[in-house]
Design a protein around this nucleic acid. Sequence first.
RNA 1: GCCCCCGUAGCUCAGCUGGAUAGAGCGAGUCACUUCUAAUGACUUGGUCGCAGGUUCGAAUCCUGCCGGGGGUGCCA
Length: 556
Amino acid sequence: MNPAQLSATVVEALASLVDQGTLVLPDGVPTEVTVERPREASHGDYATNVAMKLAKKAGTNPRALGELLATELRSAAGIAQVDVAGPGFLNVTVAADAQGQVAADILAAGTSYGATASLAGERINLEFVSANPTGPLHIGAVRWAAVGDALGRVFEFCGAEVTREYYFNDHGGQIDRFSRSLLASALGEPAPEDGYGGQYIHDIAAAVVAAHPDAPGLAFEEANEAFRAAGVEMMFDEIKKSLHDFGVDFDVYFHEDNLHKSGAVDRAVARLGELGNTYEQDGALWLATERFGDDKDRVIIKSDGQGAYLSGDLAYYLDKRERGFGRCFIMLGADHHGYVQRLMAMCQAFGDTPHVNLEVLIGQMVNLLQDGAPMRMSKRAGTVVTIDDLVGAIGVDASRYALARYSSDSPIDLDLGLWTSASNENPVYYVQYAHARTCRMIANATDLAMALPGEGFDGSLLDHERDRALLRALADFPAVVSSAAELREPHRIARYLEDTASAFNKWYDTKECRMLPQGDEPVTPTNEARLVLVHATNTVLANGLGLLGVSAPERM
RNA sequence: GCCCCCGUAGCUCAGCUGGAUAGAGCGAGUCACUUCUAAUGACUUGGUCGCAGGUUCGAAUCCUGCCGGGGGUGCCA
């Protein structure tokens, strides 16, 4: 019996009371009720506040409704005990066999345990990272690589069709500074005042020269263009490789230029004009975003006839919608949050619904600590901490886990020492180790020729308090996945895995819950039932780590 | 000025779609290994949930105002 099944059981009991005429619910029977794990162990396995929620509508008081419902529930399958407590909580103890059945259900579901259909039919476009190719990915962009990819995995686990997309622009001021920096390096000159520094500039400049030996000797404009074209391509290849090594691959790399060349910008501007949301003033074309909640209206075509930056985003958004994505996500760093309002206004100007067709997720900054002291970063000096620096220091698994384990609303201070330590102050090892331990136990069981009981499985044998605590944790997984998807918060998966690993370690440490027979004792059905529990734990930890893009090693 | 995020144990943070006595890890202190992998577990220590009001059966959670910290506020990209 998991929380969802208990909710359904309570709903049935309510419906039954209504049929009997002993309960009147003017708004009908709810389709589901809140089921939560009480903090206090003496309050049973689960609690529901349904009596308090419905009492007023039913014209009774919470305690009376609670007693009525408790009586009905006590005869339901899988329920061992129901108490009415406090202001009207129903505390439910699940029957041992029904509780143990959770483990067998997980085993049967296997790699799909925790998957739902809550986002079935949704076509989701996830745009993240989207850094312009002027240098290696820095630590802030890497946060989104980890969180964005994990969120994509969670959405897919909930049945959505997800396209991961990277948007970039290889023209404009940033790129110009990049190419001039390359050229300066090739000519042995100091980097331009507003240019980029760092070893990678020299490396790429040298590579460009190796491929195009005549490039530095060209006239400035031609040389600059040669370094831009070749440098951008090399830089981008490097970024893609770093991301791939990080376990993140994009389905679409979208080039801003396409929007201008294909006429998509003109079409988007025309569409907004038809909808009456643009006007001309001071020689420029403006989008009336203020009427949709923005601070002020925004220029989309500058007075020199060039599209403003926003014009590309307008066209890009429209393009995504025309490609059939009902939900477009854009993930931005906190330094871009000022852009959110105008994006939402733009969405509304197209006649769409903000926060439904378009969602912008904001991630706060990442700071790195070494030996407790912050590492100073400077683009000019080239002391940016890159994705490769991070992975080189702590590895892919720890990097992804560390970046995905915190709410995106919180700035992260990552201590490099902690994430390389091999102890339970390092959460990723704690979870991975628990998984590896289940693998060892399963291998040991195989050596003893222990079999999974299959049809003969008796869930009631898993009735120790530590068995039940572990089963409750395992049963929570689908609800955690759903909430991570709904709230767009993959960090919930990580926190859940730590709790589950802890429940498993406590169970493992309990003498009365040993899975293997001792000495020459024969294998009992209890041992086999515990093997099912270990398998179930293994499944949950592996599925959860998979959602975060972190490996689940069999031994450590 | 306006906008966004944050403020919970000594530290780092969960919890926030309202529920019962507010949690975890680290730190500090004590204990348990002829182990199913001790990369573990048990116990102790530790809180005016920034402040003040409001909403209600019930507020860390929702609303309002303040205080403190961070970020943003271009016809840049």
